[in-house]
Design a protein around this nucleic acid. Sequence first.
DNA 1: CTGTAAGAAATTGTCGACAATGAGCTATCA
DNA 2: TGATAGCTCATTGTCGACAATTTCTTACAG
Lengths: 277, 277
Amino acid sequence: MQPRKIEASIAVYCAKLTGSEELLKAARGATAGREQDGDVMDDGMTSAAPGELRRPPSDGAIFDRIVAAVLEQKLAGGAKLPEAALCEAFDCSRSQIRRVLVVLAERGVVALHPNRGAFVAKPSADEARDVFEARRAIERSIVLAAAGRIEADALSELRANARAGGGAETAGDRSESIRLSGEFHLRLAEAAGNAVLTRFLEDLVTRTSLIIGLYGSRAVRSCSESEHDALIDALARRDGPAAAALMEHHLKHVESALDIRDAEQPPADVRRLFGPG
Amino acid sequence: MQPRKIEASIAVYCAKLTGSEELLKAARGATAGREQDGDVMDDGMTSAAPGELRRPPSDGAIFDRIVAAVLEQKLAGGAKLPEAALCEAFDCSRSQIRRVLVVLAERGVVALHPNRGAFVAKPSADEARDVFEARRAIERSIVLAAAGRIEADALSELRANARAGGGAETAGDRSESIRLSGEFHLRLAEAAGNAVLTRFLEDLVTRTSLIIGLYGSRAVRSCSESEHDALIDALARRDGPAAAALMEHHLKHVESALDIRDAEQPPADVRRLFGPG
DNA sequence: CTGTAAGAAATTGTCGACAATGAGCTATCA
DNA sequence: TGATAGCTCATTGTCGACAATTTCTTACAG
């Protein structure tokens, strides 16, 4: 897997401003690697030569763009994702968009409301706590496995990531900082060599980004860098238990920096609670 | 829809014993609870009065039937799932089937091969090991949480399940035994109260069933009952660490009873490894 | 008898049209 | 002014038809 260039440029998408323009900008946004069963992954957006016919992007490319937008907090929880706007943005058909939306829903990134459309997921307080608990469970296991088998080059990639993350943070590049932090955890998962856990963690990282967007005060500035560094050191020493403890502390720390409480009472559900009367 | 007069109409398909008959049986098979966003869950198959129009089953109902068939080892790994056969079996449209297949693929229950169709997943040896490792990670956390908060009635439900499982086992009802064992772990997950982990575990339990079908010798007879009993006792004592240790042992035991090695070299992929030349 | 090639059949993938549902707006009335 | 009812418009859901691809069958040559 390549160094994942995710320089997505998806504009902020408020629930209010549902214009398709923002999504149109997404069309020339990030690229990312992704693999499906038998289909060769194209480069995502084939920027058409003038007057040429361009293939629509693959499902995976669309999926990655939307996830990247969530990771970089360009798409906030609760934002509506109208099919027509997505079709224009990605220059593809509705059936393709609908398929991708089903996948995104399955991954907990969007919520599908029948007859009302797709919305970026808006994790409840309970769900947010569950996500962090799940991350502790999974990443503990990942770290224990990684400590026993991580290679030198993987370690240096992690260090490079931590360095870049620190840089982005001091530079005030919040979006990049969040992205790199997520990438750190996913790289670590890959080093652990468990594809199943890695897949689960992908979902959790994305949802964590939504949670931070929903429940994070602006003081969320992470000490991530130093904590990531300490973690890398423990891994370099092959000290699994220490690394696990550091990871647990790290995740608890991130969670505790949030204010996870159910905010507004959704008045919408009341209406639809009672049948179609 | 009457005792289904489709029996003979579905063609039998490759993959050795991959006849779709299993699917038809699945159509009147297990039922299970499941919930989606806004749609009320119907009872699955609406047995229509003669000459009446019957609604097609919900996506969730179809999903559950197929998963149940896998759990009960009525559908073996690698079996083909032709869309037309599924349409007839569930009396629904292709678009619905295709949507459900995408979900099943996302959950790791089926594999979608472009232009070739859907097949029940066939976890590799590596994947099988990863699944068990993931289960250890997740169920450890589940058990620790459950020990602190499980209610008396949940405990008695678990005991009832363990008892029934033992009965099914001595009775030689392999399918029921497997089903009950999966249910045990899922009930426990619910008692732990983490919806995210429960969701992950659902996938893993299903895939475990596939793995047992693929790599299990017939000697897989589980000592599950006694192990489940010991686990319940530890939970009743609120002894989280003990329960976690028992769970770890239990899962390791199940895994060690299997012969997880890549069996046949798949000759199929070689052909398609090189481009469409 | 084996291997190859071409044709036929079956299956999957995609698109557009139409139906169904919900959201927003305006007019009316208290 | 505020609320409600009805209407209009926009969006989502579903189905059928057609195109693309693969698989099976048959014919034929070595």
